[in-house]
Amino acid sequence: MIGNDVVDLSDPESSRDARHPRFDHRVFTPEEVRSLPTDHSDLQKRWILWSAKEAAYKAARRESAEVVFSPTRFVVELDRSLCGTVRYGIRRWPARVQIDGDCVHAVVSEDASFAGILSGARRLTSTELCDPSEAVRRFTLSSIATELDLAIADLRIEKIDRIPQLILAGRAVPAALSLSHHGSYAGFACRAPRIGKADRISQCVTAGGFAHSSRGLSHAASSTSIAYRPQVEQGDLR
C-alpha cells in the first residue's frame, strides 16, 4: 500500500498564526514536539512531520477501514535526508519526504526501495486552482499515461469508498493510488503496473492483475516531479 501528502508552505493555512495553540500537542508525539526547532525553520519541519503522518494514514486506510486518524499514533522517524519510517502500532511504513521551494511532499510505501512507485508533485496553474481536485487527477493521469505509454483518454480516476481507483478502458486497474492537493500544489503516488499498449485491455480483463514493470518506475514523474532539494538544515527529526 502507498500514501502521499502534499503541503504548500506558502499557503496562509500553513502559517504559525493559523494554528490553534494546542495543535502541536494534539498531533505530534512528545518526542516530535521536542524535535521542532524554535527558529524560523519550525514551519517546514512541522509540515514534514504532518505530511508523513497523513501519507501513512492514507496507506493504512487502504489496508483497513478500521484505522483511525490519530496523528500521535503515527510516529515519524526520519533521518537528515528525510528518509525513514512512520510507525503505527506494530506496523511500519518506509517514508520519504521531498521538498522543493514551498512544496513538501511525503510518500510512504511498503517497500523501502520505493521500487515501482511513480510519484510527483507540482505547482498548479491559476486556471487549475479553480478546481484542484480535477487538476490533481489530470496531473496524475498525465504522469501515468506518459510513464506507461498509454493514451490519457483511456484512463480516469474514480473514488470507491473514498479511495481513488485507477480505471483503464472502463475497468479498474489493480494499482494503488494516492492523491493530494493543498494550496497551490498537487501531488500523487502510484504503484502502477506495466501496461503495454497492445495488451492492456486483454490483460485487464483476463489476468486480474498486471506484471510489474521490468524497467521499474522512477520516483520522479517526468518533468513535473519534484526533486529532492532540502531548503534548510534538516537536523535529526528523530
Binding site: 493555512e13 493559523a18 490553534h20 494546542r22 495543535f23 494534539r26 498531533v27 497523513e54
Partner: peptide, 12 residues
Amino acid sequence: VNSARLVDVVLE
C-alpha cells in the same frame, strides 16, 4: 476543509 485544519476545528 483541509484535514490539518480539521484538527484546529476540533480544538475550537
